[in-house]
Nucleic acid binder design. Structure first.
Lengths: 337, 337
DNA sequence: AATAGCATTTCAAACGTTTGAAATAATTGA
DNA sequence: TCAATTATTTCAAACGTTTGAAATGCTATT
């Protein structure tokens, strides 16, 4: 048991050559004789040699660890996005530390410090809804560690790398879909105003209205953060005017939409069955709802995650200059249920 | 920008002492003078010295990486359990590689090999529903790398470390609860028979019946794997006998339960509203269902995860002998909605 | 004043790689 | 055949720590 680990040295002794020849043979150096390479590589394969990552990392002054900060793993979008990140990171020899801010700035700062101490080679972050000052994240770039913001990002700041869902297009499509089904009074229920793409989504909504000559009415727009009472009062506002009673609803996120639906049902809204809803997310749970949304906006979280890690690795490998700020958009699809 | 990293050597030069003194001072060696320690520690703090993990790992012949294999991150139980693992691992300087088998043995074997190559210091695994041969996992222990099975584990095998929910007790409690509410015909809908604790749960169910003098009827028991058609036909079996029509149902897992409820509703089961259901999981989504289960069995996934990583670290640190096989149970709670 | 004994610090090797420079071997040309 | 090339291999240092052994400094004892 507990066999001595296979190292370059061990291979070298077996093959009666120097450690450096073995190393270079395995790394396919052109100065190494082809036959030697073959011998070394075969031996390495047979003995199941695996290079020691710690040694390589030490030598290369890298940790091969990517940090991720996101609000909450229980959020369906983030869980799925992680999958894209992990897959691609792993394929490239990187490990990922996932950490949850619980949407609290305080915690986010702590995690950032922790990750900085862990010497991550790069950071992927979806900021908390309260993050407006970026000192704790800027320190990464100041130390030459690239940062990619994904999904939630500082809207006003052009000097950062961003990967995000094309939430404008998604919302445009959803609104258009409802218009095409004959709706004239489509409400928009936005998310926390602090989250930047709340506004992109709103713009998608409003542009779809405009392009299709549906008059915009300010009474049909309300915002909520993620807690229930807030959502309920937003919905009350939207549906309290008999004149302008909405017949359709586009919501920032499915959990919010579910709260809305639940509320409308609970008050026995007279036209409840005619109201058609769409939200961002495409949660599998929808199939269990008695009054499901008519469609969902699929945000392709895996793809967002994968694009974020791809970009980050390019930055880490200096294939893209760190100040050459990128903005990558991932399109949404409308999924009709 | 890109300031030279703070190393022991750097500190040593600043303080005009040797690297080893600095190292020992920071590690609180008794042979180092107290005053020296103070000076070193202060300097380290002021300069934000962080020891280089790669170097330490190389020296200590450790990777400080824990591997996790689980079926699916989109499963609410596993997502939550991860949280417990990550928190505790991080606190102890370990990183975690999470990998998903998608409940396929083939993929599980691949992942195991990958993690072995990554030289993880330990492995936490919830096996796929098809895992019956354990060669790919046994090789870890053969190389002295401890393995902890959590939740899903090889039931017949006593020679392994296990951390699992006390699913017997959870199911007992749920059944008892239904009996106390006057039910006499309580159906049990089990999960895949390959998953070992399907039987523990069944035993909880049956013992609760026995202890409360409710006669057991074989017709009231059915099994399903996780796909819908399967669940539907199981439910059909349970509810096709007018004589023994169940008035309550205990289900292996909430998603299965939701499928069952959905089906019963869809066929306009005459006594649908009287049927009371309980499933394992306590998914937050329940609040959006029109016909929610009357209660949920909360499995405390975070705690299961935390217990698994705690045990694993003890094994890694040889605080527990690797052959001194442990079995840790985490109790469930019944949450009435 | 020399020495034993202790406290404290430093030396030096090791962990497993990578890599430029130096050394050696093989081949070519005259 | 000998030098000049070229091909191939080896040396040696470095990455940043840890740690037992050796060295140094100091105090107390005689």
């Amino acid at each position: 048991m507990q066999n001595t680990p296979i190292t370059l040295k061990f291979l070298a002794e077996k093959l009666k050559m120097s450690v450096s020849t073995v190393s270079k043979a395995l790394n396919n150096y052109p100065t190494i004789n082809e036959y030697t390479k073959k011998r070394v590589q075969e031996m390495a394969r047979d003995l199941h040699f695996t290079p020691n990552k710690s040694a390589i990392n030490l030598k290369e002054r890298k940790s091969r660890i990517i940090g991720i900060i996101l609000p909450n793993l229980l959020d369906y979008f983030f869980t799925r996005s992680i999958y894209g990140v992990e897959q691609f990171a792993m394929k490239n020899g990187y490990n990922v530390i996932i950490s949850q801010s619980h949407d609290e700035l305080e915690k986010e700062i702590q995690l950032a410090d922790m990750l900085l101490k862990s010497r991550v080679d790069g950071l992927i972050v979806a900021i908390s809804k309260n993050t407006q000052d970026f000192g704790h994240l800027d320190q990464f770039e100041n130390m030459g560690i690239p940062v990619v913001y994904y999904t939630r990002n500082p809207s006003f700041n052009l000097s950062c790398h961003k990967v995000l869902g094309n939430t404008f297009q998604g919302c445009y499509q959803a609104t258009k879909f409802l218009i095409d089904r004959g709706h004239k009074k489509i409400a928009y229920l936005g998310g926390p105003k602090m989250i930047n793409f709340t506004h992109d989504r709103f713009n998608g909504y409003i542009n779809a209205l405009k392009d299709n000559n549906v008059p915009f009415k300010a009474e049909l727009v309300a915002y909520t953060d993620f807690d229930k009472e807030n959502t309920v009062s937003a919905i009350q506002n939207l549906f309290n005017d008999a004149e302008n009673m909405p017949t359709a609803l586009v919501a920032f996120k499915e959990p919010i939409l579910f709260d809305a639906i639940k509320y409308l049902k609970s008050i026995n809204h007279p036209k409840f069955n005619e109201i058609e809803c769409i939200g961002f997310g495409n949660t599998p749970f929808i199939s269990y709802l008695d009054s499901p949304p008519i469609a969902s906006i699929e945000e392709n979280p895996e793809s967002v995650g994968e694009n974020a890690i791809k970009l980050l690795l390019q930055l880490i490998n200096r294939e893209i200059e760190i100040q050459d700020y990128q903005k990558i958009m991932v399109d949404c699809q409308l999924v009709v249920h």
